[in-house]
Design a binder for these strands. Structure first.
Lengths: 246, 246
DNA sequence: GAATAATGTGTTATTTTTACACATTAAACG
DNA sequence: CGTTTAATGTGTAAAAATAACACATTATTC
């Protein structure tokens, strides 16, 4: 693969060949990616799960994962898994954490990199439903296969944190949404109740929502206004967070 | 390594053997850890660097890294590297990000997991100085070997963020420190100037500093009081951050 | 047309953050 | 020893952000 060139071995330096031999099979480890894909539907936060395809974990659910190919970028592997398993592509995907204890996988040493993703359930209908792929209410996620419960918990905590720092939530909503939709989303993700008036004030003050002049349809009560999130405005005004606080 | 048991292959399930074969050599990848170790000295933020031990990057500096052993937990590998290269142990170590583009290492496919660490330069004198191991001012870190510049940048940004959310900074200071020391640390890490009065007010309000009744020694001006960070009090009062803000 | 259930809005009190100035103390220096 | 120097140590007032809280409005349902 690499051109052989004459290299000197100095006291403090190693040749490419030396390193290459260290990178040989004996030191290699299987590497996988696991995707924790959050969605929002019926005012509940959901996560994509499938039946574990490993007999040992028969009946248990697991995250979407697969081995990383030797000639494939890590991030690309995460996108591929998502595409292969769900038919989804073109969405936000963030690396969260790498899990690497020796015994985490029953088939041998497999280090896995967890990715977190947020998709709009309305606009990204699943195209593949193999292995009971389904949206699972995060409130009832327990006892996943492998160490996937730990991975899920880590990603969920990260989501809770990130959602407060960045406008990720809008990826989970339809393009046009009411402020009630938005508040429901935040309440579901943060698992808390928020004051409606202060919530609205907060978001209006940010000034990233544009009034579409449209109203909700088919709601059994006074319809609310529909808004769009203005990414351009957000990008321009993005603030760098400074404030010591713990 | 694993006991062979009779397993049925169902439509949606794989046997351990099937998975094991997938985890075979052809799918394995070399995995390394790289440590970005921050210290603080002479009112400057430093980072531990060594000369790259790879001829191709002769003269360039690099982070402390090594391959992960197949039978070694990922976190353990990071601690081992730190110990082996510097003689240091018993310190805070946090996983930051995993870098996995195909061509990031000239010797072949090597995915690396970056760890970030903060050490007290005063209390953790380096015991090993091979390969020009030294504390390098972060302001002059440029053009590192491999993709280590990117890794360093990522870790530095993470540090800047984490230092504002958690009391990590105290790991970089002597056990007893003046408020000026503390402010210098924050100013160095965040690369900004802070108002002395507001800074003091902030930290006193947190109420995690205990007055040691001692004063600075050998300073060419009015000595300041020395404080200790009270970890117990912090653990009890730790606040969960809630506040949508972006 | 009355009841219902939501949307939509404003004020006040509290807390947090920012900006800013002067007296105090110990060391250094003549 | 007294003066200068360079830092520590403290308080207040304005501004901004947050939290608590109530009532009129609108569309639907019955």
């Amino acid at each position: 693969m690499l051109t052989t060139e004459k290299v000197q071995k100095l006291k403090t330096e190693k040749s490419l060949q030396t390193i290459q031999s260290e990178v040989e099979n004996s030191n290699r480890i299987a590497l996988s990616v696991d995707c924790v894909i959050f969605g929002f539907d019926e005012n509940k936060l959901k996560v994509l799960l499938i039946r574990s395809d490993l007999k040992k974990y028969h009946g248990k659910f697991s995250l979407l994962g697969d081995l990383v190919y030797p000639n494939e970028d890590l991030d690309a592997a995460a996108y591929r898994v998502l595409k292969q398993r769900t038919g989804l592509n073109d969405l936000y995907l963030e690396q969260v954490h790498t899990f690497g204890t020796v015994a985490r996988h029953p088939a041998g040493r497999v280090v896995t990199v967890a990715y977190c993703s947020l998709v709009n359930v309305q606009h990204h209908k699943l195209k593949i439903l193999d292995n009971d792929l389904h949206w699972h209410d995060v409130k009832t996620v327990t006892d996943l296969a492998f160490d996937h419960q730990q991975i899920f918990d880590t990603c969920y905590q990260r989501l809770q944190k990130r959602i407060q720092e960045h406008p990720l939530g809008f990826n989970l909503l339809p393009k046009k949404f009411s402020l009630r939709d938005l508040q429901n989303l935040y309440e579901a993700i943060l698992d808390t109740k928020l004051d409606r008036r202060n919530f609205r004030k907060k978001f209006f003050a940010m000034d990233f929502l544009t009034d579409q002049g449209e109203m909700e349809q088919d709601v059994p009560h006074r319809p609310g206004k529909l808004y769009k999130f203005n990414y351009e405005k957000y990008e321009k005004r993005k603030k760098k967070w400074v404030g010591i606080d713990f």
